[in-house]
């Protein structure tokens, strides 16, 4: 499908953080020497007094941010999703999550979007890791405007937040006036035959699949579940109760991410069927982004096929 505009969500972060920094001098960027890739260049140039770079030292980066946060700062720790979730994990748990400090992780290169970099840089575990740590909030915006709005919401949120962005360009699905609320799923399409709950760069696949299904007389409800923790359990429960047939789609391991979170709600309600589409618990490789998704069945065609199979 052709889209009018394609922008990486990391650019949404890079643009919004400058605006926020100008409005509030307590907003800081703490880089770990991959700021250029994570789009903090404009912030560094325009707000040098609020810009820190602690070098290739992610563990320290997390601790420094925690120390700053105890003094009333709102530090955005900026790195790749693989390092922000795994190299920093215990430091964030101990020094940001346990004390419930205002440390915000802004991580680019989420999912398989760092495609040609290979498995070392592809983050397929990150959202699951942070979902299991108390006090954490875990978000992946679907497009440029969602990224801008959710970055701003994260700064206003009381406590640590993990934000995950794409390296690759993704279609612009929303406009600049669309509002987002942390913990509230965004209903993109009404329908009662099947529910497709997606987040991040896979939301566009869910929308496209719904259009294909609609052409065949199947009306899918599509939800952008940008926040997987706190999960919009009311929204998921409505999908379970009103439809009972759910497909989850994510650029993340099928374990412990969006799919698992949705399954937990369905299991506790004791009804509904959920089919998880995502990375099939396997490491990636250097390959084009779209190929990596296809290898794992994260495609419009597979969503359509799974929807039909669920409906039977």
């Amino acid at each position: 499908m052709k889209y009018e505009k394609m922008i990486a969500t990391r650019d949404g972060f890079g643009d919004e953080i400058v605006e926020m920094g100008k409005e509030n001098s307590n907003i800081l960027v703490v880089d770990a020497d991959i700021g250029k890739s994570c789009k903090t260049g404009a912030f560094r140039k325009e707000l040098p007094a609020q810009y820190l770079n602690v070098g290739i030292a992610e563990q320290n980066c997390a601790g420094v941010a925690a120390g700053l946060a105890t003094c009333g700062k709102i530090p955005f720790v900026v790195t790749y999703a693989a390092f922000g979730s795994m190299r920093m994990c215990e430091m964030i748990r101990q020094e940001a999550a346990y004390p419930n400090l205002n440390v915000k992780l802004a991580c680019s290169h989420g999912g398989v979007t760092p495609a040609n970099d290979g498995a070392s840089h592809q983050a397929i575990e990150d959202m699951g890791i942070y979902r299991s740590i108390p006090n954490m909030t875990v978000i992946m915006p679907a497009d440029y405007y969602a990224a801008r709005k959710l970055v701003r919401a994260a700064a206003d949120w009381d406590g640590p937040v993990y934000l995950r962005f794409t390296r690759d360009k993704v279609p612009v699905l929303y406009d600049e006036n669309t509002e987002f609320e942390i913990g509230k799923g965004k209903l993109l399409r009404r329908g009662n035959d099947v529910a497709i709950i997606a987040n991040g760069d896979t939301v566009r696949l869910a929308v496209e699949a719904a259009e294909v299904l609609s052409a065949e007389g199947i009306e899918a409800r599509v939800v952008d579940m940008h926040t997987i923790k706190p999960l919009d359990t009311a929204c998921v429960a409505a999908c379970v109760n009103e439809i009972g047939k759910i497909i989850t789609v994510e650029d993340h391991n099928i374990m412990n991410g969006l799919g698992s979170a949705v399954c937990e709600v369905a299991a506790e309600l004791g009804k509904g069927k959920v089919k998880r589409i995502g990375i099939q618990d396997q490491f990636g490789q250097s390959a084009p982004y779209e190929r990596l998704l296809a290898i794992n069945g994260v495609t419009v065609e597979n969503i359509v096929a799974q929807a039909k199979a669920l409906i039977g």
Partner: peptide, 10 residues
């Protein structure tokens, strides 16, 4: 120490 450095930096 990293946290202390963050406080000193603040």
């Amino acid at each position: 120490l990293a946290c202390a450095a963050g406080m000193a930096l603040a």
